[in-house]
């Protein structure tokens, strides 16, 4: 198997000389927002719009806790505002990070590294959210029941067991199968990139 022979055949291969219709290219560029990379950037920008609205809406939904709950419940609900602000800033930072990826100016290794970084951030963020959000919502649920029904006596062992079981199922089924496999893939790609750049001294 000789790469130089393939090179000669590659150079003379006429089948790559295909004509493309202008109408097809025009249709493609009319769909420019549907590109995979543009979609990713759009999702991050949408998060900038959605996060403030959902954080404030959540506080309104928790009105009963604010009105009838104890100081812990009130603080727990209001903590959603700085959490929302933190998440908003994180999305804002990610948007800036993605905007800096310029495929026309950066080298292949630079783009590869940036994309791998983005995927790593996304996965770590999602795994953290998968652990912290159920925890936050679990405590919120306790405050909600306590403020509305005074059920802190019933809302104890049985509910905790069911809630923790569901949270574990959520964690292992969704997070493990979906995201840990991606981490292994990213780590493999990162190793390949590092090996590739190894002799570049």
């Amino acid at each position: 198997m000789d790469l130089d022979t393939l090179k000669r055949e590659w150079q003379t291969n006429e089948s790559f000389k295909k004509e493309v219709k202008d109408s097809m290219i025009k249709e493609m560029i009319a769909n420019r927002n549907k590109g995979a990379f543009e979609r990713i950037k759009r999702y991050e920008r949408e998060a900038l719009r959605i996060l403030p609205i959902t954080s404030i809406a959540f506080v309104f939904v928790s009105a009963s806790i604010l009105m009838h709950g104890d100081i812990f419940g009130i603080c727990w609900v209001l903590a959603m505002l700085p959490i929302g602000a933190g998440l908003w800033y994180w999305s804002y930072w990610l948007c800036g990070f993605l905007d800096k990826i310029d495929m026309s100016r950066m080298t292949v290794t630079e783009v590869s590294r940036s994309i791998l970084k983005y995927r790593t951030y996304l996965i770590r963020h999602t795994i953290l959210a998968g652990i912290l959000m159920p925890t936050y919502l679990g405590v919120w649920l306790y405050c909600f029941f306590k403020a509305n029904h005074g059920l802190d006596g019933v809302y104890s062992v049985e509910f905790l067991v069911v809630y923790l079981s569901l949270a574990l199922v959520f964690f292992f089924v969704i997070i493990w199968f979906r995201y840990f496999r991606h981490i292994r893939d990213i780590q493999r790609n990162l190793r390949e990139l590092e090996e590739f750049e190894q002799d570049n001294q």
Partner: peptide
């Protein structure tokens, strides 16, 4: 440069959306 960067960084989701322009 752009073509290689695009192809190397391209990752599809397993539930991909339908093609928006089909090549000839």
């Amino acid at each position: 440069r752009i073509a290689l960067n695009t192809c190397i960084s391209f990752f599809r989701k397993s539930s991909r959306k339908p093609m928006y322009v089909e090549l000839s």
